[in-house]
Amino acid sequence: MRNSLRILAMGVALLALPGVTVAKGIKEPLRDGYYQALKGKKVAFLPGAMAMDLAIGWLAGLKSELEPQGVEIVVRDPNFNIQAGAQALTQLIAEKPDVIVVHNPDVTTYAKLIKQAEANGILIVQINMASLQKSTAYVGVDWVEMGAVQARHVVEACKGKSGKIAIVQGDLTAAASAYTMSGIESVLAENPDIKVVSNQSASWQSDKAKSITQTVLKQNPDLCGIIGFWDNMDRGTAAAVDEAGLSDQVYVATSGGGETKAACDMVKSGAYDLNVVYSVPNQGANLASTIKYLLSAGVKPGEISGQMYTTLTPVTAANAGDEGICWTMKQ
């Protein structure tokens, strides 16, 4: 409203100028408002932990896109501790930044705080992991689709084989796990010949993933596919398959943020047959774009609520070497 008034005023001023006949040096009507809307704004970033490659990628995107516009970015690092995260978010609400980018540890912990923050006039953008509490924007992966994509590939690979697959989950209570699982289940429901022989949680730990996979492979030497929930953890899964000498027989599917070493290199080496990648730099750019839009449009919390799902790229041996599929973290 304020912006349009300003534009109107500018137009009136232009008309009032005598003898303006040539359209040279005409004032661009948007940029002043845009820069003013962004300048001096404060964006807070609350990841699960700054030690994750995802968080580093997102923060890099935010900084490169927003800082040149005069937006201040502050980071709070709860270091995987959700109580610390909740406390940091509570403190942020009292500090009143304009936007908080929240990476939820699960669907419930931050829900009340997100509601409280938006009630206090702070825009909440959720990244990659949506809370049950909807906020102004969600940027990130569609986990149900993620599960479905992996499951379809594994089902395809198991055609004509034993049909036995194993699932290596992260934390059972993590919502991403639950959503991914529902995606997998919907695909499996259409393929009754596929049998899940083991569905275990490795708590995001690679050594545990390896132990579980080793045991499962010993019990089911004819296993044809494994769906893992995170590529960093599934290094262990892949190592177990590799050690058992079953790399050709067992189709290993996993997912992750597309960092070269964790994704493309592993697919190239044959450790994973599939890594469904959500590009973290793209997510970072999406985040920044969303924030730019929200701030320049002067959106108030609660007025709108929208999603921006990240494109999922299945990385297989066929495209792992292609330019731009993976991204490399700067040290």
Binding site: A51, Q205, N232, A239
Partner: peptide, 13 residues
């Protein structure tokens, strides 16, 4: 060597 990487997050476990 066994899993091909070292996750320092294991300290949190």
């Amino acid at each position: 060597a066994s899993v091909g990487s070292m996750s320092t997050r294991i300290y949190n476990s």
